[in-house]
Design a protein around this nucleic acid. Sequence first.
RNA 1: GAGCCGGUAGCUCAGUCGGUAGAGCAACGCCCUUUUAAGGCGUGGGUCCUGGGUUCGAGUCCCAGCCGGCUCACCA
Length: 511
Amino acid sequence: MSEEQSIRELRLEKLARLRELGHDPFAIERFTLTDTADGLLKRFSELGGDDEDVSLKPEVRFAGRIVSMRFMGKAAFAHISDGDGKIQGYFRKDDIGEYLWEVLNLMDIGDHIGVSGYLFTTRTGEKSIHVRTLDPLSKSLQVLPMGKEKDGHHWYGLEDVELRYRHRHLDLVCNPEARKLLLDRSRIVSAVRRFFDGRGYLEVETPLLQLEAGGAAARTFSTHYNAYDVDVKLRISLELYLKRIICGDVPKVYEIGRVFRNEGVSNRHNPEFTLLEWYEAYSNLEDVMTTVEDLCRFVVEDMNKSSGSTTSSSGVDFSKPWHRVDLLTEIERHTKLTADDLSTLDKAKRALGDREIVNPATGKRIHATDEAHLGGLIEKLLEVFIEPTLQEPTFVVGYPIETSPLAKKDPKRPGFTRRFEAYVLGRELGNAFSEINDPIDQRERFEQQVRERAKGDAEAHPMDEDFLFALEGGMPPTGGCGIGIDRLVMLLTGAEHLREILLFPMMKPGR
RNA sequence: GAGCCGGUAGCUCAGUCGGUAGAGCAACGCCCUUUUAAGGCGUGGGUCCUGGGUUCGAGUCCCAGCCGGCUCACCA
C-alpha cells in the first residue's frame, strides 16, 4: 500500500468520524463571513481587536483553508487563508469544549473551516481570532504541497513546473507569486474592458468557427461542423468580422477573444491566445496611436491604483507619448541600407551581397535569398536589426504592401501602407492599420494573396467574397488595431514566460 | 521540428567507484493551554519516468521511448 493511499484512507476515516459527530463538512452550504482575512486585519481596531473587555468584543466570522496548524497540548494555532490573505485562529480546549476540540483534531492542513470568535493580539504580537466555535467546511483527501513561509521566504513549496501547469489549483493555493500573476491577467482584461466601455465602444462576439479563417497570416486548426456537414477552421483573427460590423454602421466596436494559430510553442507563443481588436470609424492611424497610448496608461494606472504610478512592473513608464519612427528610416539607421537599396527585391539582394547577414549584437542571421518578395525581406530586417532596439514604447510606421493586405496604401509612398506596429521592450505588442475601405483595392490584395498561396505560401490570406460584399455596401474610413492580450499581460506584469500568465497551458498527455 | 539539460518518498532535494535507498518538511503516535519555518521523543512511507541491454549485481553504465525545462526554428 502506498503512502498516498494510506493518507487518503486516514483522511476518509477522519471524515467518517466528523460525520458521526454531526459535523459532515460536505453537508454545509453556507457560512457567513464578517470580512476577508485582509479586511479583518485592516479593520482590527474597529472590530474590537484592541478592546480590553472580552465580553464586549463583537463576534467575527471567517472561513478559509487551513494552511498551517500547530497543536500545543490543549491549545492550537492555525492560519486560515481565503486565498488572498490569511489570519491566525487561536483555539483553546477550555473555550471550544471537548466536543469541538475533537472536531478540531480531525482537521488537517488543506481543509476548509469556518470559525467565529473575537479578535485579539497574541503574546508575540500577531493579530488573531480567538475562536469560540468552528465548522468544518471541507475535508481535503490529499496532502497539499503547502510549504512553509516566514517573512516572505518560502520553504518546501511546489516548485515542479510541470506539476504547477498540470494542476494549477495547487499553484494557486501554494504559490502566492504565481497566483498574483495569474489573477493580474484577469484584472488587466477587466481594465481593458472598462477602458473601451468607458469610451463608447461596443463589445461584440464573432464566430470562432469559420469556413475560411482570414485576417492574418497563420496556419489553422480544422474541425467538422456536423449539422451542415462542412469542414470549418478555428479563427486566426477577429478582423474581418469586426469590420463587417463597421460596415453595418456600428462605428466603435471591440472584441476580446481567443484565436488559434497552429504553430510552435515557446515562452512567447501559444497556439491559442487572446486577441484584443478594436475598430473606430472616421479615425486614422494617428488616432489609433493615441488610443494605444491611452489604453496602456489607463491599464497601468488601474494596476497601480494605490500608488497612482504610471510605471509597469516591467519598469516601463507609460505616462509619456510613445516614439514614432518610420520603418525604412530605422532600417537605414541600423543597417546602412538606403531606401533606394530597398526599392526592389533584386536591388536589396545585391545590396546584401546575396549572402547571409548577421546582426552583430544578437547573433541572429537571415538569408536574403530565402525571401520571395521585397516586403518579406524588409520585415526580416526589422525583426533582426530593429526590434531589439525598440525598448521604449515605439510605433513603427510604414509597412510594405506585400505583407499588409488589409492596410490602406500610403498615397505618398508607392509600395507602402498606412500601418504601424507597436513595440515595447523589444517585443511586438500590437498591429494597426488604416483599414482598406475600397472594395476594388481589397479584392486586388486578396487576389495577390491567393497567388502567393498558389506558389506555396500556406499562410497567405484566403479570398473572402462575403467580406468583399460587405465592403461593397460601403465602409467608412476606419482605424483598427489588434493587441495580443497575453503579450500585454507579460509586459505589464514583468512575466518572462507565457505559461505563467495562462491559467491552463496546453500540456501533452503525461502524468 | 533540432540541440542541450532534467525525471529518486506527498513536496524540496542528496545518493561517492556499479554493491540491497537517504535527509528536511509533510504524515502517524506520545508530551506540551499565546505558538508561528513552534519544540521534544518515537514510527511508517519508494514502479528510483517506462522498456530493453551489459553485469554475479544497475537509481548509477549503454540503447530506445515518454514527459518536462531551456535555447533555436515558425510566429504574435
